[in-house]
């Protein structure tokens, strides 16, 4: 006989999908509110979105306990940043901090899949992370990506959408992901700023 007793892992995957779309003058960020473990649903109303700074929002999925710890570290670091610089952190600064914070734990990683969004000098882009990202990302590419980065003259990397159109797109990609991904569902929380 081999194993006769319960075993444990320091990780779990609690699922969830995150999406963000940034236009020139707005940013939409969204995540579902389901939290699962295996085939169980732990709760149907868990917010994965965290407001890190005035103009910086992060949606995270993966291992809930790590996500919570990561959000707490970033919020604490942002608080000291405010005390030291007397201003809110910018989005690229927060992105760099997120990157460094994740790499700091390279050998005992935060099992967290994050999308960071916010308003910053009209930067545009879109992304999806989490359990449904394999279903969502191709749709976003199809709707938003320019035909080819090699085209001359260069075209915008992202198809310009109005804010309302972006929110509608987010709703429809979540509607699709919910159909096929058991870890995505129940509700979508959508935050936008402009």
């Amino acid at each position: 006989m081999t194993k006769q007793h319960a075993n444990w892992s320091p990780y779990d995957n609690n699922g969830g999908s995150c999406v963000a779309i940034a236009g020139a003058d707005y940013c939409v960020i969204a995540a579902d509110t389901r939290m699962s473990t295996g085939y169980n649903i732990l709760t149907r109303d868990y917010s994965k979105i965290s407001q890190l700074a005035e103009k910086c929002v992060m949606a995270s999925s993966g291992f809930q306990a790590d996500v919570k710890a990561l959000q707490k570290v970033l919020s604490a670091r942002h608080l000291t940043y405010q005390h030291q610089h007397n201003k809110q952190m910018s989005c690229p600064a927060m992105a760099q901090l997120l990157s460094n914070t994740l790499y700091y734990k390279r050998f005992f990683p935060y099992y967290a899949f994050n999308v960071l969004g916010g308003l910053d000098k009209g930067m545009v882009g879109y992304s999806s992370q989490g359990s449904g990202s394999t279903l969502i990302m191709p749709s976003l590419d199809n709707q938003l990506k320019s035909p080819s980065p090699l085209l001359l003259p260069a075209v915008d990397a992202v198809t310009p959408l109005s804010e309302a159109e972006a929110v509608d797109l987010v709703k429809s990609v979540f509607a699709s992901a919910t159909e096929r991904d058991i870890y995505t569902g129940d509700k979508v929380e959508i935050q936008w700023s402009s």
């Binding site: 990780y11 709760t43 306990a65 919570k68």
Partner: peptide, 21 residues
């Protein structure tokens, strides 16, 4: 609820172990 690896949440009703199923 909290479990051994730190997963935690609030809800109107909760159950541990087989109670979840």
């Amino acid at each position: 609820m909290v479990n051994m690896i730190g997963i935690n949440f609030e809800d109107n009703h909760v159950a541990t172990g087989l109670g979840n199923h």
